[in-house]
Design a protein around this nucleic acid. Sequence first.
DNA 1: AAAAATAGTTGCTCCGGATCAGTTTATTTC
DNA 2: GAAATAAACTGATCCGGAGCAACTATTTTT
Lengths: 234, 234
Amino acid sequence: MIQSNDAKGISHCTVFDSETSWYDLLTDDEKILINENSVSITFKKGETVCKRGAFASHIYFLEDGLVKVYLEEKNKNLILMLAIRNNLLGMAAIFDGNNKLPYSITTYTDSVVRMIDIQVFTRLLRQNSAFSFHVINLLNEKTAQMYGRFFSLTQKQLHGRLADILLCLSNRIFKSTSFELPLSRADLGDLTGMSTESIIRMMKEFKDDGLIGMHCKNIELLDIARLERISEFG
Amino acid sequence: MIQSNDAKGISHCTVFDSETSWYDLLTDDEKILINENSVSITFKKGETVCKRGAFASHIYFLEDGLVKVYLEEKNKNLILMLAIRNNLLGMAAIFDGNNKLPYSITTYTDSVVRMIDIQVFTRLLRQNSAFSFHVINLLNEKTAQMYGRFFSLTQKQLHGRLADILLCLSNRIFKSTSFELPLSRADLGDLTGMSTESIIRMMKEFKDDGLIGMHCKNIELLDIARLERISEFG
DNA sequence: AAAAATAGTTGCTCCGGATCAGTTTATTTC
DNA sequence: GAAATAAACTGATCCGGAGCAACTATTTTT
């Protein structure tokens, strides 16, 4: 598990990724049940997988692609997390007295989503404790990341927040110090809780300071130690 | 379940409370196991129950009192949630590869905390799927509230944030439109992500506008409809 | 290939709210 | 019950960063 920043402070990362498969914890019968009650759907870049407030009918298993999980209201937009392949999404809808999705999901790239009937999924959670224990692990790991992000967005200012997001993208999403961003500057704004203009200005500043290299959508982290210091000091 | 604001928008509330007891889902043997591996400790007002970063040795079941669950770093302080009796805390530490507490807990009032051995607790989660399913429910309900709070603190400005917190305190913690606050103005600041001075100014403004009544620590919500409108429009 | 729409960029202005510096009012402490 | 400490409050200043307008570059549409 990657936990690059936890040693020195509160982790601020944004994405959840686990290689361990929940699927392997199911019995053969349960696997069949899941297979019979799920379909794999292809979404094009920019398409909406689900909307907050809708009845939660499925659990979404992201088989491939990159999506944002977000809240929107009026013109306000908050990206809760990014998710890549192997992520289970929509589980947050599972709690008593609730039957609505707590967030929306939209793709950044062409994505493949396996949509699993939520009734079947919860039935398995109720009957298979190894499975549900694993799900608890997944949820808690997401929550820990959410805390870090919450801290970053509420307690740090622009420099720190941008450093956080860049480190996160590098560590968790692209797993490389250089990557091609499929997100717009406006999306980076939503992700860091700042305006599009500020994102542009900050990134230019980082580039001028030699912290990152940048040509259009291509970004390279050049001085990770300094980025981490910026992250730490806010 | 109280969900006062979900109808019109993103819920912004801060506290988790569930009357359903996880304890009843255990078998007699499991109950005995929990009893033998837990102790009830009394904390005075202002005492620290646990600190972020420490090894997670226990799950904390708040039997009585009021506590804050928070992140602190340097002079920055973010209250993640308030918790009252019947809350299970510290579960967020349960995930693979992690053995540290992701947050600190401090009491606001004299509190009674049952400290349950985390190994025993996780063993029960692994073996009792009704129990672990219930825990998933609890975690998800907390997460949904966290999302709302996250949205509130990052997307709304002072008026909206204060309205959110006041409605939350009234709905979830004190379950009354008038209550005596055991929190200082500085704590309200941490809770709303604003400075102590701003809290004071905003509350005075709310008082002058007839939204709330206030004498020292005693607060009464006078115009809930208007507070909800302020919450909605940020 | 031209037109239209979207995304990226820059400079300028302005305001929300933090910070600072101080005063007043409560709580502790001895 | 006087002194000390902490919490509550007030006014004045200042700055981070949003918002706006204008312009350029890049896609998308037809």
